[in-house]
Design a protein around this nucleic acid. Sequence first.
DNA 1: GGATAAGCGGACCGCTCGATCCGCTTCTGG
DNA 2: CCAGAAGCGGATCGAGCGGTCCGCTTATCC
Lengths: 201, 201
Amino acid sequence: MTTERRALRRDAQCNLARILAAARVAFAELGADVCVAEIARRAGVGNATIFRRFATKEDLLVAVVEARLREHLAEACWEAAEDPGSALRGYLEAMIGWQVEDRALMDSMAARHGCDPRLRELHDAMVEVAGRLLDAARSAQVVRQDLEVEDLVVLGTAIARIGAGLEPSAPGGWRRYLDILFDGVSPGSGTGRSAAARRAG
Amino acid sequence: MTTERRALRRDAQCNLARILAAARVAFAELGADVCVAEIARRAGVGNATIFRRFATKEDLLVAVVEARLREHLAEACWEAAEDPGSALRGYLEAMIGWQVEDRALMDSMAARHGCDPRLRELHDAMVEVAGRLLDAARSAQVVRQDLEVEDLVVLGTAIARIGAGLEPSAPGGWRRYLDILFDGVSPGSGTGRSAAARRAG
DNA sequence: GGATAAGCGGACCGCTCGATCCGCTTCTGG
DNA sequence: CCAGAAGCGGATCGAGCGGTCCGCTTATCC
């Protein structure tokens, strides 16, 4: 499809790798709003070198986020969980964890509409997985019947945002809110594994 | 305390009122990031006229948000609710509704740390009210015992953010997520009034 | 009605950011 | 080894922002 003109010069290949590595870290730490100059500084290159490989900053962002999403998806296997309830919870836990650890990924997931088609495709794939897990959980009666897959997306991104804000003061504190989401604010509803986890400490 | 130099000229008073009105609408619609030029345009004045009354954009924002918060607080009376559960829910519903209708208010509430002391004071007052309502709800056993007032703040702002994003496509759709928060994802936990509301349609 | 201070607003400044330009350097194939 | 292409990066542009300046207008008070 893409006609590869020719191989990059060796030093250019090295610079490209450093750019991608620096961008990955910088985007993860500071979100999609990091300025290109900061990434160039971390990579030890001039900003023009970045724009020679990526036409726009958005292109670089998409490349980095797409790569990270593919890695995550490749190593994930929620279907292997012991029961539909913990499978669904595992999915949400993973998705939120990724976003808390990578603010640019979070930004990209939050911008559901009008985002880049490449990310859109991956996003849709993840939603499809979520749909299957949700169907199974619904059939097993471990979640309310009126829960839609869009609800999971919305609630997942919301908890991710909570978690990102909470992370400096209470690392991992977002799991508590995933508990609340699963069990609810009301008392005596501890039906999921989160209630057991809370008992265990 | 503040030594009032003298009354504003009549036309200046009029302009100040137009600035405040325009800023209120613009901030509510577009959030705290609206540029001053846009507010000036809407008010039909030059941008310098705004900066003559408010030293910084932040001052204008705080003045507008503070006024709106005071109005909201003045007309609210959650303590009058019939039971502690609906009082707490009414409080959250109001808080979230305000933020969904006023994006600058939402931005200000979300920026909990390092925000202006004037807003901080009002924020603390609201948290105090929430604390009293939560205590009552806990005593009445209508919420889980480990729920803290900080949880309410965090979850409230999260749902507000959900709602703001959802508002164009599904106005009022955030109430569904307040339901889920109260009842939980798990089935058979419909103890609050939200379950009754869902039954009623 | 006129003197005068108060008020006005468009032009402007300084800054940041994404993106481009161009003279210089460095890798590479023959 | 060397010609020439490929690559490099600091300087620079242009747009958008918050905030300031200054010559002109207008309300106010006697």
